[in-house]
């Protein structure tokens, strides 16, 4: 007997794959954004050497393929540092760092977009550097960054599909399994593609609402 046809159980598989994809996406987003924000604070305080190292490393991460980064972590690190590495750990580590690198750039330009006058005024009022960051810069930088961040996250959702290559059973991997079993590439990949599409659209819609909420106090007065 050949199990070549689609079965109802395939829907369960699909749901599992979607769960893995969304779970990993959520986890890497949280870690990546937190790390990106932390790096931005480091950069803001102009820590001597570390600031330059952070910029160099994030540039390297932004300018190399995520697939190669995944291979470096999953195949390279266990061989070089003699550590154990599961596919999920490798995926979490790589995608989080990648998100952090891009988020760092977005946050940094958000911080730089805050007018100097406001910071000078705050300094005149005797605020400390931390108070300025906390009360003046970060609320505005968050509002500036939210638009580009949504674009980044929609992109990172698609980047998570690469983790299927190192064996994480995400949506793409499930697609691969179903494709090889049923030999119906059009049906399988259309369904998988559509699922990703709907997730991306939902994410963008959610982000749009958040953006309107954050920018409600900013009135666009034209150029």
């Amino acid at each position: 007997m050949r199990y070549a046809d689609f079965t109802p159980y395939d829907l369960v598989l699909l749901a599992q794959g979607l769960g893995v994809t969304l779970g990993l996406f959520a986890a890497t987003t949280l870690i990546g954004l937190a790390l990106g924000a932390a790096l931005t604070v480091l950069h803001y305080y102009r820590v001597p050497v570390i600031g330059h190292v952070v910029v160099a490393v994030t540039e390297l991460l932004k300018n190399s393929p995520v697939l190669v980064q995944l291979f470096l972590v999953f195949f390279g690190m266990p061989a070089f540092f003699q550590v154990n590495m599961t596919p999920v750990t490798a995926a979490l580590l790589t995608v989080s760092l990648n998100t952090a690198a891009f988020a760092f750039v977005i946050f940094r330009s958000g911080v730089e977009a805050v007018e100097r006058d406001q910071i000078e005024a705050a300094r005149v009022f005797g605020h400390s550097r931390w108070q300025i960051l906390r009360r003046i810069i970060s609320p505005q930088a968050a509002a500036f960054s939210v638009g580009p961040l949504i674009g980044l996250l929609v992109n990172q959702l698609q980047v998570t599909s690469l983790i299927s290559v190192i064996g994480v059973a995400d949506l793409t991997k499930i697609g691969n399994i179903l494709n090889l079993r049923t030999l119906e590439p059009f049906v399988v990949w259309s369904v998988i593609g559509l699922t990703y599409y709907l997730c991306a659209k939902a994410l963008a819609a959610l982000g749009g609402r958040l953006e309107r909420h954050l920018r409600r106090s900013v009135v666009w007065q034209g150029l």
């Binding site: 190669v68 195949f75 390279g76």
Partner: peptide, 29 residues
């Protein structure tokens, strides 16, 4: 990347190979 995968498997030095690859891609871009 495909050739690097093969080289990493034959030399069993994945870390060095992929690290070089990372820098190569960065240089290319």
């Amino acid at each position: 990347t495909g050739t690097a995968k093969i080289v990493a498997a034959t030399t069993f030095m994945p870390f060095e190979v992929y690290a070089v690859l990372l820098v190569l891609y960065a240089a290319l871009t």
